[in-house]
């Protein structure tokens, strides 16, 4: 299977795809270095492919899904005030667009749920914290 990062960033606009891809490459290098050189992370040595895929998903989540959810939350505030349409720049968001965005985020969370992943696994700044989160996750 081709790398998950390529699948997740395919067809994204250049700027966003680049942002996600570069962050992924940088963190992957760092993650491989930490796993190869520190005993603390040695249990992940045989599982680098899983680390790689989960890392790609975490960056996709942090860069896109969180912002989609934040936007949906605002549209809910508008719905409570009986407003079903919104203009952001030249884009018009109607009820059907918001519904589609809702199902997109729901499908994402369904994957997390199926694999028993809490979004807190993706709450990290330094790559070493991501690896620590992964180690904790494996123990559960």
């Amino acid at each position: 299977m081709s790398k998950i990062i390529n699948i997740l960033t395919a067809k994204l606009n250049y700027e966003t795809a680049n942002l996600i891809y570069n962050e992924y490459q940088e963190r992957l290098r760092e993650s491989n270095y930490l796993i190869d050189n520190y005993d603390y992370y040695k249990s992940l040595r045989e599982r680098k492919a899983s680390v790689e895929t989960t890392l790609a998903l975490s960056i996709f989540y942090k860069r896109l899904i969180t912002n989609f959810e934040g936007f949906l939350s605002f549209t809910n505030t508008l719905h409570r005030n009986k407003i079903n349409e919104m203009n952001v720049g030249s884009n018009l968001y109607q009820k059907k667009d918001m519904k589609r965005l809702y199902f997109l985020t729901k499908d994402f969370y369904d994957i997390l749920q199926k694999f028993n992943i809490s979004p807190l696994l993706f709450d990290y700044n330094d790559t070493k914290d991501f690896l620590k989160n992964l180690l904790e996750y494996r123990l559960k």
Partner: peptide
């Protein structure tokens, strides 16, 4: 995703 990612 492609459409919405332009407005992140």
């Amino acid at each position: 995703v492609a459409e919405h990612s332009k407005r992140i």
